[in-house]
Design a protein around this nucleic acid. Structure first.
Length: 472
RNA sequence: GUGGGUAUAGCUCAGCUGGUAGAGCAUCGCGUUGUGGUCGCGAGGGUCGCGGGUUCAAGUCCCGUUACUCACCCCA
């Protein structure tokens, strides 16, 4: 038999891990809906030319082809478009907005939680198939700035709600493209995109190397490179950063109109964030984002203590999310890397599930003849919303308890009237629902009636709780 | 796409300068025939990633290949 090896970059969790992931997804969805975002799902594939649009560099898109179709050229000749799996949720959403523009009400707020695929080399926290949870607000023609304030605050709230299960604190790092571009142009640099790309490497390769790159690759002078690094060095969680940037720009005579506009926007965001999510949103002027279509706010989110993992939630404002020639649809959005987040929560032991099965009660079986008694008990419990299952075989009770223990099932129900053998109790009689229930963690065993007994609320369903791990 | 490392039981790993495959944990059974977890005893489980080469003999040496893994690029 061929050895089964995991496919790298296509994460699969054990049931307990899935419980954690499902909880994260539930919290995200709940938070998004609390803020009025409507859920949608788009198809997994888009025409290849659509995916490669928007000046996207050679994204490693997975192309779809049928095994039987050995002639993709012939396929194109027949007018069939080549299809690729989407690598994010923004491009499909832009297409969706154009396609349904007539039926949507703008500004349109939507959330979308789906798998995406990227043909990259996998690494810790980097996958080829992973789940993203996006929120975007898209306007028709224009989109007020305050949505650039709202979107990160929604995410801050979602992350805040995950603190109780053991998620570390997050920092949402914010910058504004207008500030960066205004500043660079103000000091005489025109290759804004190139400068951003180099600045983005600051954390990894350090000041000297970035300065060298700016000079060598972006045509900057020593002095201009120094100015860029000075800007990138500014960060803070209150509005003092605004004054700091302004002072720096003035000292270089670089206070452009664009810069002024950007600073006003950034200030509005910091003021609102300071009030609604204190300490979470941090202005960080070195946040660049590689993607070139951002035009206003840009966001990255790191887990405190896990900065090496990279961003777990990124996005920004783009003036032309979509355009049909006549109308343009500006948008602002953020995307949570659910798989990246969950993989760290699990591998770092930060979070665990109390059990991997939904079952709260295992109903023991005494003999195959009396299995109907056990089935009746289970039915009564389920009728009152208590997840339970019936033991697979009338094994020794010790083995049946072990069956429950291995799965984390907290209770075992022994059918039969207290003090009597279960065989005495007819399956259809009311007394068949009487028995005793054992909490296998404490060993405590009490007489109980399946029509009234219920487990403690915290044992009814698997729960997600902080783990013992500290991460790293 | 570029460069390094690794590949032996379900898992974590030993296996020396080549000489017919090992441990711990896990699983199953028994001790304990209707109340688990501890303890003791026992059992099952491996074409040593795959293909070729050198050799009397290859898990071990050589070549190739695939997968995994780390870093770069890039990104959630």
């Amino acid at each position: 038999m061929a050895r089964i090896a995991p496919l790298s970059g296509f994460p699969e969790w054990l049931p307990q891990g899935r419980v954690v992931e499902q909880h994260v997804l539930d919290v995200l969805r709940h938070t998004f809906e609390l803020h009025g975002f409507a859920g949608i799902e788009t198809r997994a594939v888009e025409p290849l030319d659509q995916l490669l649009r928007k000046g996207e560099t050679s994204k490693e898109v997975y192309v779809l082809s049928r095994l039987q179709d050995a002639d993709p050229a012939g396929q194109r000749d027949r007018g069939e478009k080549q299809l690729g799996l989407h690598f994010d949720l923004t491009v499909p959403f832009a297409r969706y907005v154009l396609e349904n523009a007539g039926k949507l009400a703008f500004p349109f707020k939507r959330y979308q939680i789906q798998k995406v695929w990227r043909g990259e080399r996998p690494q810790e926290g980097r996958f080829r198939e992973f789940t993203q949870a996006d929120i975007d607000v898209v306007g028709s023609g224009d989109l007020p700035y305050h949505y650039e304030v709202e979107v990160p605050l929604v995410m801050a709230e979602a992350f805040g709600a995950l603190r109780e299960i053991g998620l570390p604190p997050v920092r949402i790092l914010v910058n504004n493209r207008k500030v960066a571009e205004g500043f660079y142009r103000g000091i005489g640099l025109s290759d804004v995109e190139g400068v951003l790309r180099q600045i983005d490497k600051l954390d990894k390769i350090g000041h000297e190397q970035v300065a060298t790159l700016l000079v060598d690759q972006c045509g900057a002078s020593e002095d201009q490179a120094k100015a860029c690094l000075a800007l990138a060095g500014i960060s803070g969680s209150d509005t003092s950063v605004i004054a700091e940037v302004r002072a720096l720009a003035e000292s270089y005579g670089a206070l452009t109109e664009l810069l002024t506009t950007g600073l006003a926007e950034l200030e509005a965001l910091m003021v609102a964030a300071g009030r609604r999510a204190p300490g979470v949103v941090v202005a960080d002027l070195k946040i660049a984002r590689g993607l070139d279509y951002y035009t206003g706010s840009v966001y990255e989110t790191v887990l405190v203590g896990h900065e090496q993992l990279g961003s777990v939630c990124s996005g920004g404002r783009y003036d032309t999310l979509a355009s049909d020639g006549k109308n343009t649809y500006p948008g602002v959005g953020l995307s949570v890397g659910v798989s990246r987040l969950v993989s760290r929560l699990l591998s770092g032991g930060l979070v665990t599930a109390t059990r991997g099965v939904p079952t709260a009660v295992l109903v023991a079986v005494a003999t195959e003849e009396t299995r109907p008694v056990s089935d009746a008990v289970a039915e009564a419990l389920r009728g009152r919303g208590i997840p339970c299952e019936v033991a697979p075989a009338p094994a020794k009770f010790g083995k049946q308890i072990k069956y429950a223990d291995r799965r984390g099932i907290p209770f075992v129900w022994f059918p039969g009237e207290p003090g009597h053998g279960p065989a005495d109790a007819p399956a259809t009689s009311g007394t068949a629902l009487v028995g005793s229930v054992k909490d296998i963690r404490s060993g405590e065993q009490l007489d109980a009636d399946a029509t009234t007994w219920e487990p403690p609320a915290e044992d009814l369903h698997p729960r997600v709780v902080p783990g013992s791990g500290t991460g790293q």
